[in-house]
């Protein structure tokens, strides 16, 4: 029973917040709604017993989206003063969303403990539940049978990194920008840098 309630709860919020992603006028709000969508999709994954994918969704998507969010904020011309002024006005909405997320967390844990949802397969019979957790199963495959593919993927990421650096990194020109020597700066005394002068009126100074 609790699984069914949790399922409909998550599913409704996924759809609703997905709609809000495209309806929101403020791009920052869109990104926040997107995070909400991913979070609830992760909840759905927990319900079907795929806790590893749920974790990935939260870590990769929500984490990556947080970076995306930063980019959006940096790239777009957003008036931060106005946004801060709106904070107290938006606070109730924020509190409501926080409350929903908390409720979802409790619901998901409760539903997970109550056992996974029954999955149907094409011929109508229920799928066999695996006797290992899926983190264990994925790990055994990834680091056992498919180890060579895993390593090749690692090399691909290395090449991507080399590529990014080769194409963007500008080595500093020698002598163009002196390095800061803190010790030298601290050692410098006022008498090294300043001279006291007492010029005649109307004469000016010779430096």
């Amino acid at each position: 029973m609790i699984q069914a309630i949790a399922f409909y709860f998550f599913a409704t919020i996924v759809v609703a917040s997905a709609v809000m992603v495209i309806m929101a006028k403020n791009p920052v709000h869109s990104v926040l709604w997107l995070i909400m969508t991913f979070f609830n999709a992760a909840g759905l994954m927990v319900l079907v017993g795929a806790e590893f994918i749920a974790m990935l969704l939260v870590i990769v998507y929500v984490g990556a989206v947080a970076v995306l969010f930063l980019f959006v904020v940096m790239m777009l011309d957003i008036d931060f003063a106005e946004m801060r002024a709106g904070f107290s006005r938006n606070a109730p909405l924020g509190l409501v969303i926080a409350a929903i997320l908390l409720a979802e967390l409790l619901l998901a844990v409760g539903a997970y403990n109550a056992g996974g949802i029954q999955l149907g397969s094409a011929d109508g019979s229920a799928m066999q539940a695996a006797d290992t957790s899926n983190i264990e199963a994925i790990g055994a495959l990834l680091y056992g049978r498919y180890i060579v593919l895993f390593e090749i993927a690692g090399i691909i990421l290395l090449v991507a990194m080399i590529g990014a650096i080769v194409l963007t990194f500008q080595p500093p020109k020698p002598g163009a920008r002196a390095r800061q020597d803190v010790g030298k700066q601290v050692r410098r005394r006022p008498e090294d840098a300043t001279v006291m002068k007492n010029p005649e009126i109307g004469q000016g100074v010779e430096l």
């Binding site: 090749i152 691909i156 090449v159 080399i162 080769v166």
Partner: peptide, 23 residues
């Protein structure tokens, strides 16, 4: 097919960078 795709991507990714190496 998985090996195929990974090999292909490793080659292609290096090739993209090589094509643009005179930045």
């Amino acid at each position: 097919f998985m090996t195929l795709y990974l090999g292909l991507e490793l080659n292609s990714l290096s090739a993209y960078v090589l094509a643009a190496i005179l930045r």
